[in-house]
């Protein structure tokens, strides 16, 4: 199963490193990263593999959410399926 992690908020040093470290600690493999900064506003989307980790989706979901709350960023993970459903025929 694959997921999409999104991180949105004010840009600062180390955001990518922090999120990647957290994902690595849960055994989540990052397949692709895309990020932009527009007028100081940071947005990152990551395609991740959550099929080969023993960490349950719920734990990954809540850990990312907590990380977001601690750092003032909006971080979430959603299954890739929802985007495929909406944009691929």
């Amino acid at each position: 199963m694959r997921g999409i992690v999104t991180v949105v908020g004010n840009d600062r040093v180390g955001i990518i490193a922090e999120v990647c470290t957290l994902l690595a600690s849960m055994g989540v493999n990052i397949l692709d990263i895309n990020q932009t900064v527009m007028q100081g506003f940071f947005t990152m989307t990551m395609l991740v593999d959550i099929g080969n980790t023993e960490t349950p989706f719920e734990t990954i979901h809540s850990s990312l959410k907590k990380k977001g709350e601690d750092t003032g960023l909006a971080i979430r993970i959603q299954r890739e399926d929802i985007f495929n459903a909406m944009y691929k025929v």
């Binding site: 999409i4 999104t6 895309n34 990020q35 947005t43 985007f83 495929n84």
Partner: peptide
């Protein structure tokens, strides 16, 4: 992969 823009559009 779904584009960065499409993902952000869905979040919006």
């Amino acid at each position: 992969m779904i584009s960065h823009k499409e993902i952000l559009r869905t979040l919006a």
